[in-house]
């Protein structure tokens, strides 16, 4: 086991070095910008995973908070002329948090299908605002005319500078989320997902924990939205449409719910696959659809889940053969521990 944890450290190190080196490896600028998109969508997908995977809330309104973050950047810069990155980020996260506090109070009155429908409706309301409140949001045309701003050491006007900004944001968000789901708070979320009544009986306010998770997830989504707005230097109602919500949900499911790293992988797959496929054929949407169907059929717990299952099977086979050679047949319980 020790060797495995060292191996993991090595893997993370290599991945990190690779991610840092990518813009300097002579990779065409376009791939660097696709990776940048992956990091941004990765943050968004991980924020949704906190709800879908850990809290058991299938929220259809994550795009709304993503879009709120993006619109705060655009409206702030073009109407109120505040262009400071940190101020913008803080305002965006706060606005999204406040919105989530209001929406959460409404949506969490219901569970399961009811929750889905309410979140879907709330997302549509925010989309409708962005689409129809033309004097504020630019309506269907969206908002252009604001530029990326330099953040600390990152010269965001060039592609690699923005890449590093997004990568840094991703690493910070991933670390925070991992710490959170491993903390007692995260364990209560999982407990409330699995056995809400028992958790309530144990004295936990299940509703409050879910509510907090929803608000926190919205704040992370807003961070992604802020980055997305600066990245494109354009914000339109598409960023908070139902399409985006569904797309992010697919990233989470494709990668594997409740794994955080899975949704990041899902984001990468979606970004790269859709671009690669659309180069080859006009029917790329159809092929993407087929990929989702196959995933849901053969890897319902996502790609990370599939890999884990295969790895676990290989491990148990190895242990089995090990045990078979050491102990007489029949005395071994491959699952370990007593049968229940």
């Amino acid at each position: 086991m020790i060797s495995r944890s060292w191996r993991n450290i090595a893997i993370i190190g290599v991945l990190l070095v690779l991610a840092i080196a990518v813009p300097r490896l002579g990779l065409p600028a376009f791939y660097v910008s696709l990776l940048t998109q992956t990091w941004i969508y990765g943050i968004l997908a991980m924020s949704l995973d906190l709800l879908v995977g850990f809290t058991g809330l299938v929220s259809f309104m994550q795009a709304a908070f993503f879009g709120i973050g993006a619109y705060v950047v655009a409206i702030g810069a073009t109407r109120y002329h505040f262009v400071d990155f940190w101020l913008t980020l803080v305002v965006a996260v706060l606005v999204a948090g406040i919105a989530a506090a209001a929406f959460g109070a409404l949506a969490l009155r219901a569970e399961d299908a009811g929750f889905i429908i309410i979140t879907l409706a709330l997302n549509e309301i925010v989309w409708g605002l962005a689409y129809q409140w033309v004097s504020m949001s630019g309506g269907d045309n969206g908002i252009t005319g604001f530029l990326r701003v330099n953040v600390g050491p990152f010269h965001t006007t060039d592609n690699s500078g923005f890449y590093y900004l997004s990568l840094t944001a991703l690493i910070i968000c991933l670390t925070l989320l991992v710490l959170m789901v491993r903390s007692p708070f995260g364990l209560v979320l999982v407990g409330a997902r699995e056995r809400p009544r028992r958790m309530a009986a144990l004295g936990y306010n299940v509703w409050l924990f879910r509510y907090l998770a929803l608000v926190i997830a919205a704040m992370f989504a807003a961070v992604a939205g802020v980055l997305f707005a600066y990245y494109n230097e354009f914000v339109g109602p598409g960023s908070l449409s139902l399409d985006t919500t569904v797309q992010v949900l697919i990233m989470v499911i494709l990668g594997g719910t409740g794994t955080l790293i899975g949704p990041l992988l899902g984001a990468g797959i979606l970004v790269f696959l859709s671009n690669a496929l659309s180069d080859i054929t006009q029917r790329w949407v159809l092929i993407l659809g087929a990929v989702y169907v196959v995933t849901v059929m053969y890897a319902p717990d996502g790609i990370v889940g599939l890999i884990n299952r295969l790895a676990a099977r290989a491990r148990s086979r190895r242990e089995l053969s090990l045990a078979a050679s050491a102990a007489p047949a029949g005395a071994f319980n491959p699952r370990g521990g007593p049968e229940r």
């Binding site: 495995r4 944890s5 191996r7 993991n8 450290i9 893997i11 993370i12 290599v14 991945l15 690779l18 991992v178 491993r182 794994t259 955080l260 790293i261 899975g262 992988l265 990468g268 790609i303 990370v304 890999i307 884990n308 295969l310 790895a311």
Partner: peptide, 15 residues
């Protein structure tokens, strides 16, 4: 790391 331990294959794939 403990969390990532269970996901090392995913890491290989992304490399």
């Amino acid at each position: 790391f403990a969390f990532l331990r269970h996901h090392h294959v995913a890491a290989y794939v992304s490399i």
